[in-house]
Amino acid sequence: MTKRPKTDPLHLEIVRAREAQRVWVDAWSAPLGTSFDDVARRAGLEPLGDQWETLGRAAAVDLLALLLHRDLAYSGIAAPATQARELAEGFVGSFGPEECRYATNRPLRGGRFAPSWNPATSFTFDAGVIVVGRERAGVLWVADED
C-alpha cells in the first residue's frame, strides 16, 4: 500500500478539530483483496480478524460524526456537531462514489457507542472506521484516556 501525503487538508482539519490522546487519519492506495486487518496493521492498530463489525456507508458516517463530536471517556463535546458531521462525510466521501467496505471495533447502538468493544490500541478507549475501496483504503481512528 502506498501512503497518501500527510498534508491532505481534510486529514489535517480532522486532526485539528478532534483533540484526543491520539488521532489516526490516513489513506493509501491499496491492492485488490486488501483486508480490514491489512489496513489496521498499516495504521499501527491491532488486527481484529473476525471481530470487526461491518457497517454500511451511512452508519460509518454516523459513527465518525459522533466520534469527532464527543470524547470517548466522558462524552464531552470535542468538536461542534455540524463540523463533526461535515468532516465525517468528507472523510468517507474522499474514497469516492464507488462501493466500499467499512468496519469498526465499536458500533453504535441507539445513536450511542456500544458499551463494550474490541480494543485496537493500548489506550483506555478507542474507536474508528476502516474503509476499503477498490483502489484505496484508509482509517479514521481516535483513542482517548480516562
Score class of each variant (00 low, 15 high):
Arg41Lys: 14
Asp38His: 08
Val23Lys: 05
Gly44Met: 02
Leu45Lys: 08
Arg18Ser: 07
Ala43Asn: 02
Glu19Cys: 13
Ile14Lys: 06
Arg41Asp: 06
Gly44Trp: 01
Arg16Asp: 14
Arg41His: 07
Arg18His: 09
Ala20Ile: 11
Ile14His: 05
Trp24Phe: 08
Thr34Gly: 02
Thr34Asp: 00
Leu32Val: 12
Asp37Leu: 03
Arg42His: 03
Leu32His: 10
Val23Phe: 03
Ser29Ala: 13
Glu46His: 14
Pro31Thr: 10
Arg16Met: 11
Ala20Met: 10
Val23Gln: 07
Ala20Phe: 09
Phe36Trp: 07
Ala43Trp: 01
Glu19Val: 14
Val23Ile: 14
Ala43Asp: 01
Gln21Lys: 13
Pro47Met: 09
Ala43Val: 10
Leu45Gly: 05
Ala17Lys: 11
Ala30Thr: 07
Val23Pro: 05
Ala27Gln: 12
Arg22Gly: 04
Trp24Pro: 00
Gln51Ala: 14
Gly49Ile: 12
Ser35Gly: 09
Arg41Cys: 07
Asp26Ser: 11
Arg22Lys: 13
Gly33Ile: 00
Gln51Thr: 09
Asp38Met: 03
Val23Met: 07
Asp38Ile: 07
Pro31Glu: 11
Gly33Asp: 02
Glu19Ile: 14
Gln21Phe: 14
Glu19Gly: 15
Ala40Asp: 03
Glu46Pro: 02
Val15Arg: 15
Ala27Leu: 06
Leu45Tyr: 07
Ala27Thr: 09
Ala27Asp: 09
Ala27His: 04
Val25Leu: 02
Asp26Trp: 08
Trp24Gln: 01
Ser35Cys: 05
Ala17Gly: 11
Glu19Asn: 15
Arg22Val: 11
Ser29Lys: 14
Arg18Lys: 15
Ala40Leu: 07
Trp24Ile: 08
Asp50Glu: 13
Arg18Val: 15
Arg42Ala: 03
Thr34Val: 08
Ser29Tyr: 10
Arg41Tyr: 06
Arg42Pro: 00
Gly33Trp: 00
Ser29Cys: 10
Glu46Asp: 14
Val15Met: 13
Asp37Gln: 04
Trp28His: 07
Gly33Ser: 06
Ala40Ile: 05
Arg41Glu: 12
Ala17Tyr: 10
Val23His: 04
Leu45Val: 09
Leu48Ser: 09
Val39Ser: 00
Arg22Asn: 12
Arg18Phe: 07
Phe36Leu: 11
Ile14Cys: 05
Asp50Met: 09
Asp37Ile: 06
Pro47Glu: 11
Gly33Cys: 04
Ser35Arg: 08
Trp24Met: 02
Leu48Val: 11
Pro47Gln: 11
Gly44Ala: 06
Leu32Asn: 09
Arg41Gly: 03
Arg42Asn: 01
Glu19Leu: 14
Pro47Phe: 05
